[in-house]
Design a protein around this nucleic acid. Sequence first.
DNA 1: TGACTAACGGAACTGGAGACCCGTTATGAC
DNA 2: GTCATAACGGGTCTCCAGTTCCGTTAGTCA
Lengths: 206, 206
Amino acid sequence: MTADEAEPGTLRPGGRTARVRAAVLRAAGDVLAERGFAHMDLADIAQRAGVGKTTVYRRWGTVTALVTDLLTEMIESSLPRTYTGSLLGDLGAHARLVHTTLTDPRQGPLFKAVIAAATYDERTAAALRRFYDARITEWAPCVREAAARGEVPEDTDPREVIRAVSAPLYYRLLASGDPLDETTADRAAKAAIAAARAGIFSPGKR
Amino acid sequence: MTADEAEPGTLRPGGRTARVRAAVLRAAGDVLAERGFAHMDLADIAQRAGVGKTTVYRRWGTVTALVTDLLTEMIESSLPRTYTGSLLGDLGAHARLVHTTLTDPRQGPLFKAVIAAATYDERTAAALRRFYDARITEWAPCVREAAARGEVPEDTDPREVIRAVSAPLYYRLLASGDPLDETTADRAAKAAIAAARAGIFSPGKR
DNA sequence: TGACTAACGGAACTGGAGACCCGTTATGAC
DNA sequence: GTCATAACGGGTCTCCAGTTCCGTTAGTCA
């Protein structure tokens, strides 16, 4: 909608516009955590945010777009990776970060909602790809450092290892519905290392 | 809705009722494959199926319920596991089965839709858990057989190995959006075996 | 082969999500 | 300060997904 006018917030990003955005995103996060994706209603969110519903429809238009914006904000406030000096320590930290994110009462529902929306909305899918690309890029160096230390083969694909750590956690959250606990996170890190040592993530060795 | 009357199809499952169900599920699958989950409209599906829209609303009520029923039917027509005599052969076959399912023009969109719906609908989530439980139970024996042959430790958790094979494929489909090809499937099987051999899926060894 | 009724289907109805109109507020440039 | 206009917001309307009503069709059982 309103394709012929400039993106709101780009010409007057100060004061009120920023306050409105913050209030709406806050309210949207609250509704998502409290009532879930299925009960998100833009008019209700507008009221909670103390903002006119016209404003919400004009700036976001759909629940999907609003949830995507929520993810975008989360990317910006993403935590930096940790350094422990060992691959198991680093990948374990990554696995626990993913676990914490997916089970957090605010972030968990957000991720479920975003992933659900991404299955049918291309903009959301693109935002999600950007998020994982950033996360993987952030953590991949720990595999390169481990390769330099000789913990895994020199030609190990770092990004593939990071993906291998996250995958089991997402599988449980979204598909099988099996419990998502610290044991699972820990095992995911160890399994990825075992596979890497066996050369499974080394393109050369086939 | 209509909670006080018997489940349609239970008292007169023959003839017309079965034809209506088949026609509607067929049409729903077509719409899902052609236009996607977001464009599924019960009235449209009813028309395509040559059935009254009242009937569709009475028997399914929501797009989510209809998609869940579609999954239920798929479970019943699920392929049996294959036997190759080696763990790599068996797990490779499982990985290719998952890959084929997720990239199939009809089944792929169905799985995306069901998983999206399962994030906010408990009935769909339950149906999905049943599906994976059945799949894992079907394939777990191949790990036990491999353990008997000495390919992996005796106390390897068979179900955990099967989950480890599927996980990377689902992660790519739903989260990262990375391409889903045979190489990925092959690597998933190999990685699971490497982890199992290292004792990561053996509860005893910690 | 007829009676009973589960299940279907056309048509009219309704509620509320989302679009629209237009006056108001307050940001940013001078 | 003052002006132009980006952005907000209350009120109203529209449209269609989902419901209801009630007559029709066809399984099932005797």
